[in-house]
Write a protein that binds this DNA or RNA. Structure first.
Length: 675
DNA sequence: ATTAGGG
DNA sequence: CCCTAAT
């Protein structure tokens, strides 16, 4: 039954709004997720294969010379391990020493800072700016009987011509079991690069054979590939460094009398920055979270639709570039992590893990502000548990990529689960779905989602040195561990855990968050690589820390692998709207509603509102209409299936009767109208 | 701004 | 409860 399904979706899937979405536009976006589910592609392989396109921020500002011509350039560099030696130590610290690989092939894609790189895709020329990422393509063999990628591999023919880069889908070969490296090798063997600055490489991407990209609009924002395309675009602003400046556009969450959220929008001057944001933040005692995340553009192409188009749901505004000073910051130290090995069970064995680097954290008025900077992707592994390196897809892994300016704020009274979800949603909005966010405090995974940040110690002044975020594929267990070596991860710098005082835990009345229902688990990886850190609550009570309290295994990743870029915190912000708090209808409310509808009929929800819910500002006529909808549904289902506060049967009967009556009446009216 | 309906 | 299309 349609209605049934609809309601199931709406209510079973309803989440308590403890944490708002990162942005609404994050919803309904799941190219990676769908791919995952449809094709069993590892989340992070997908991620890796797209992340470079997703995140187009210049890594290091490169000289913007145009020695090679007007058009800037991509530099695709495919080198083998032997060649790697000559490449200097750029790859020396490459963490992916893949045991199963007899050869590693690295694909480097360097974008020069010059904007407006142009390339053609299916004959359509695009330009893009600020493109830079680094891909490490890993040699893996495809298991012939392994994963059904489904649509096969699309191949991208890349011609690099000293600054210009044309890229088009040249081959829709079905999955042939040939890995990217094989392809590359073959390519090199048969078509050795000439020494003229022209290189030709063929890169395979996972993807649909239908993945012929078309340009629908905004051609300059497109990026092509033979696989699922979801791209992030820097803005078109020259000479502004790796990040783009925009007029800030933030929304401030206030609370009205009814404790509903009101969103006001305003622009703040470029130099006001975070203070403004934070000072205007909500009180934070209600678990409300506001977050900003912006400065990316996303486009993707549905495999099926074969088109590239911007996420239609994302509302973008204020893209006018704004010149602001380049406040660079070298954040290498963030990645200084103790070299501690993961040991123990690892449900995410062999899966790719990404560490979000935290650029800065500050606490202001109980609002924890977290600025993310970049992310490093690496592979995790199971210590002592060798995973047969079979069943691997085409492997493109990205050592590092940048998260476009990402800024979230959470009340310190929010729960850990809140934070996770917030971050996850923010990240999801960039990278697609299928990710799980873990939180590391002092290098230890925080397990208790129900503790507040304060209780966990996240909000200390010590700040960022405590905090780390990891991204894991949600369905790690269903994936095929591609790597069997050490994880190449970083985490926030671990230092001594300065314990919170007990008072923080037991502050009376400070946090009603703790009374919130448990946060949904973020994924299947909660028992992942990292041991949990006991919550302050538990430790402060005097409990002995669990013996399993090991430290995270986060061998330091190559500093060079990390995309270290300045974070421009005063950039504008995008839309973020808080979902209203859930407020189940009480029986008296239902009674009032039923009575009003009996009188006024369905379809006059404004009148119903005025009549019966005038004083209840949080009940909109849409709410009433929705409630009626659910009431009708509730009345139709068996009492056993009903949930929540039971509505008296008498009322439900009236609902049914009323509904029938007015339905009939409307039908009659319609019939009359037709005649 | 309301209404209707899918999610 | 959200989101949108259609009024």
């Amino acid at each position: 039954m349609v209605l049934q399904r609809r309601l199931e979706y709406g209510f079973n899937g309803y989440r308590m709004p403890e944490v708002p979405r990162a942005s609404r536009s994050a919803r309904g976006r799941g190219p990676i997720r769908s791919k995952l589910e449809a094709n069993q592609i590892h989340a992070f392989e997908s991620l890796a294969s797209v992340a470079g396109k997703l995140l187009q921020e210049s890594k290091d500002p490169l000289p913007t010379n145009d020695s090679c011509g007007k058009d800037p350039h991509f530099k695709f560099d495919v080198i083998t391990k032997s060649e790697q030696q000559d490449k200097g130590n750029l790859l020396k610290e490459e963490p992916c020493e893949l045991g199963s690989c007899d050869e590693e092939t690295f694909l480097y894609v360097h974008g020069l800072q010059e904007r407006r790189e142009s390339y053609t895709l299916n004959g359509v020329s695009h330009s893009q700016e600020n493109f830079s990422y680094e891909i490490n393509s890993v040699s893996k063999s495809l298991d012939s009987e392994g994963i059904n990628i489904g649509k096969g591999l699309g191949a991208v023919d890349s011609r690099i011509f000293c600054g210009s880069y044309s890229n088009k889908v040249v081959n829709d070969s079905p999955l042939s079991g040939e890995s990217i490296v094989d392809l590359l090798k073959r390519k090199r063997a048969t078509e050795p690069s000439q020494d003229t600055g022209i290189k030709e490489d063929r890169i395979e991407f996972l993807g649909s054979s239908e993945d012929v990209m078309e340009v629908e609009e905004r051609p300059h924002e497109l990026v092509s590939s033979g696989h699922d395309v979801k791209t992030l675009f820097s803005r078109d602003c020259k000479n502004q460094g790796p990040f783009l400046r925009h007029r800030s556009n933030i929304r401030v969450v206030n609370r009205d009398d009814d404790k509903n959220t009101m969103i006001k929008e305003f622009e703040h001057p470029p130099d006001n920055g975070d203070r403004t944001i934070m000072n205007l933040a909500a009180s934070g005692h209600d678990g409300k979270i506001r977050q900003v995340n912006r400065n990316w553009r996303t486009c993707y192409a549905h495999q099926r639709s074969q088109k590239i188009y911007p996420f239609k749901k994302r509302k973008l505004f204020n893209w006018s570039p704004l010149n602001t000073s380049d406040r660079g910051c070298n954040c290498e130290d963030i990645f200084n992590s103790p070299d501690k090995r993961v040991n123990g069970d690892n449900c995410c064995a062999g899966s790719m893990i990404c560490l979000l680097s935290v650029f800065n954290i500050c606490v202001d008025s109980d609002i924890l502000c977290i600025y993310f900077l970049s992310a490093a992707v690496g592979s995790s592994s199971t210590t002592g548990q060798q995973v047969p390196p079979k069943s691997n897809n085409c492997n493109l892994s990205i050592k590092s990529f940048k998260v476009p300016e990402l800024f979230i704020e959470v009340p310190t009274t929010a729960t850990v689960g809140s934070l996770k979800r917030t971050v996850m949603e923010a990240v999801t909005s960039i990278l697609g779905d299928g990710l799980h966010v873990g939180i590391l405090v002092q290098g230890k995974k925080v397990r208790d989602d129900n503790k507040t940040l304060l209780q966990t110690g996240i909000s200390q002044d010590d700040k960022r040195h405590n905090l780390g975020f990891i991204l894991e594929p949600k369905r790690a267990k269903l994936t095929y561990p591609p790597f069997s070596e050490d994880p190449s991860l970083v985490s926030g710098r671990s230092q001594e855990l300065t314990r919170h005082s007990t008072s923080l835990v037991s502050q009376p009345g400070t946090s009603d968050v703790s009374m919130n229902p448990p946060v949904l688990s973020l994924g299947g990886c909660n028992d992942g690589d990292f041991k949990e850190v006991p919550s302050l609550a538990s430790t402060s009570i005097g409990k002995t820390p669990p013996t399993c309290q090991a430290l995270v295994a986060v061998p330091p990743i190559s500093m060079k692998a990390l995309a270290v870029v300045p974070f421009h915190r005063k950039s504008g912000h995008q839309e973020y709207v808080q979902r209203r708090m859930r407020r189940p209808f009480s029986v008296p409310e239902v009674e009032a509603l039923v009575q009003a509808v009996e009188k006024l009929g369905t379809g006059r929800w404004r009148d119903v509102k005025l009549r019966a819910f005038e004083s209840e500002k949080h009940r909109t006529y849409v709410d009433l209409k929705d409630k009626w909808k659910t009431l009708v549904h509730t009345a139709r289902i068996s009492p056993q299936q009903r949930r929540g506060e039971p509505v008296p049967q008498e009322l439900l009967d009236r609902v049914l009767a009323t509904h029938a009556y007015w339905s009939h009446r409307h039908a009659k009216q319609q019939a009359k109208a037709v005649v």
